[in-house]
Design a protein around this nucleic acid. Structure first.
Length: 580
DNA sequence: GCGATCAGCT
DNA sequence: CACAGCTGATCGC
């Protein structure tokens, strides 16, 4: 059980995974994943009343978590107060004290946690430093190194504090609980991509074969402080802290860690399944060489960077002929308030592995890396992209918010139809199973202009897909409440509008982030680029490249079963995929 | 009646 | 062993 009380020392005005007691006064809530032990107080009358009185209070989570949460009638009252944020898309949020009017800006980036569908870690950046809340995470060694958004300029960001899940802090726990099957498929009814890979058959549980060494993660991040969220039975907070202390900055060399993310990524040939390989690769690739490995997709600044210190953030941008429309925006680290963004063009890197290409929407891969490196290829995104995380290097920034990259990558195309308004997109994050689903439209959000997406990955969204065609159906971004919510991508100001904040014209469909800033709105439409094909594949969840794409018949079968309430037992992906 | 908590079980 | 969640019992409001 988590011992975390919901608040972080640096940003006490926000509450994460706890919604009771002191947390009732939070200016914003964050839910890392949809597990009961992280939802304490989330449906309590006290919080319900709070929402009724405080119209500016929202709950931020990943699209998948939002979807899962809202499948329960007990949490439906949150429907208009939940803002989903795409994975790896730095998003600026204004924390307003409704009583005093005091406002604080913070940028949050969701990073896949690999714990369960939709699970994320939260990286917060603001005036009080950069802090990381891991929630429950299960990342293989090396995965942190592949998260661009955890890096800036090729090295790990300067993280003040890490609030982490220390469940497996004890050396004797190397095995992840093997239960992975789900009891109910219904909750995934709106996420066919995920559904296709689930089973209720306990005998065919997906076995987690990674060996988390919650230690590896921390030593890599090397924060100033590390706070254990979970104190295993039989131990004490002090003991856990003692274990963590050697991994924190004071105990490590002060030398900056340089990790060529891109290289790592490139090297990686397999995804989930081969963790070990990943690990090895990682080790091999160490630093310095080749700082700019071949980027999977780099975003190149398409415009100039405005601020020297700015780091690229990805923004979906206008249409560029090629695919990448994303531009990267940059933010200056310290100046969140004024965030400056620069646009970058996203370049894709080619992964060596070629697989099928999924039309990935725009790519999001941003390469955080400084403007210098980049290439602009315009190729179609490759399969790997979906499965791998990009490790581009990055940026920093508010530090870096590069990433959209993955986002892009991860955000994969939408699969199923857009037809209903809800298209689901799942991006796969590689190993981590986190899935992202873009939400559909929720239409009616109220406005909230406080959220801004720094980078947009929208493209990923299926939307983008449509965009290409020009047939883009305006998808509203649901996340953001209402029109305003549009997330603005933080674009470099110059490029786009200045304020990041919000914006959208009301009424208009907000496009996903990227579009937002685009001057004329509807650029989105034009965005096309990225998105391209609708073909985006659906799943990203499968960790392995060979994973199969759900066939129409399979989906049909699933839907029928769901409709009739029958249980579904699927074989896991190992089965063949070949046909698609 | 409902929520919170705990134990037991899966 | 831990995880995540459900069920049932108990207690308090």
């Amino acid at each position: 059980m988590s011992s975390f009380q919901g608040q972080m020392a640096e940003y006490p005005s926000i509450s994460i995974d706890r919604f009771d007691r002191e947390n009732l006064r939070a200016r914003a809530y964050f839910l890392s994943h949809c597990h009961k032990d992280h939802m304490k107080g989330l449906r309590a009358p006290a919080l319900k009343r709070r929402l009724e009185c405080s119209l500016k209070v929202y709950l931020y989570c990943s699209p998948v978590t939002k979807e899962l949460l809202l499948t329960s009638p007990k949490y439906r009252f949150w429907e208009k107060r939940i803002i989903s944020i795409e994975i790896e898309t730095p998003t600026q949020i204004s924390l307003v004290d409704e009583a005093s009017g005091e406002k604080e800006e913070i940028v949050v980036t969701l990073l896949p946690a690999g714990h369960c569908p939709g699970s994320v870690m939260f990286l917060f950046q603001g005036d009080n430093g950069t802090v990381l809340y891991t929630g429950d995470f299960r990342l293989a060694k090396g995965e942190a190194a592949r998260m661009e958004l955890l890096h800036c300029g090729g090295r790990v960001k300067d993280i003040q504090s890490v609030y982490l899940d220390t469940t497996f802090c004890d050396p004797k726990f190397y095995q992840i609980p093997s239960r992975v099957h789900v009891d109910k498929l219904d909750m995934f009814r709106n996420m066919p991509d995920i559904l296709h890979h689930l089973t209720t058959d306990r005998s065919t549980q997906i076995h987690a074969c990674r060996h988390p060494k919650i230690k590896d993660f921390l030593s890599y991040i090397c924060p100033v402080n590390a706070y254990p969220n979970v104190i295993p039975v039989g131990t004490t907070v002090d003991k856990v802290i003692e274990i963590l202390k050697p991994l924190c900055r004071s105990s490590q060399s002060t030398e900056p860690k340089y990790k060529p993310l891109g290289k790592l990524k490139r090297a990686r040939t397999t995804h989930l399944d081969s963790e070990e390989e990943e690990e090895e690769e990682e080790e091999e690739n160490d630093l310095f060489d080749d700082p700019l490995p071949v980027p999977l997709r780099h975003k190149v600044p398409n415009q100039q960077t405005h601020h020297p210190e700015v780091f690229p953030m990805t923004v979906v941008s206008q249409n560029q002929p090629e695919n990448l429309r994303q531009s990267t925006g940059c933010i200056k680290a310290e100046s969140m308030k004024t965030s400056l963004w620069a646009n970058f063009i996203d370049c894709e890197e080619s992964n060596s592995e070629s697989e099928e290409e999924l039309p990935i929407p725009a790519s999001g891969q941003g390469d955080p890396s400084p403007p210098h490196k980049q290439k602009t290829d315009v190729e179609v995104p490759q399969w790997d992209v979906f499965f791998k995380r990009n490790d581009d290097d990055t940026d920093c920034g508010l530090e870096n918010f590069p990433s959209s990259t993955e986002a892009g990558g991860s955000q994969s195309p939408k699969l199923f139809s857009d037809s209903d308004g809800e298209s689901t997109h799942i991006s796969s994050q590689n190993s981590s199973q986190s899935t992202h689903i873009s939400e559909q439209g929720s239409q009616g959000w109220d406005s909230q202009s406080d959220t801004v997406l720094l980078s947009s990955q929208e493209r990923n969204r299926g939307d983008s897909t449509s965009l290409n065609k020009g047939s883009y159906r305006p998808r509203v971004k649901e996340n953001l409440p209402g029109s305003q919510m549009e997330q603005n991508v933080l674009c470099p100001k110059s490029t786009y509008s200045e304020d990041v904040n919000v914006v959208s014209s009301a009424g208009e469909p907000t496009t996903v982030s990227s579009g937002k800033h685009i001057p004329q709105e509807r650029k989105l439409l034009t965005l096309s680029t990225n998105a391209d094909s609708q073909s985006s594949s659906d799943f990203e969840i499968p960790a392995t490249p060979e994973a199969e794409l759900p066939k129409q018949e399979h989906l049909q079968y699933l839907y029928e079963k769901l409709a009739t309430g029958e249980s579904i037992v699927l074989k896991k992906r190992k089965s063949s995929l070949l046909d698609t």
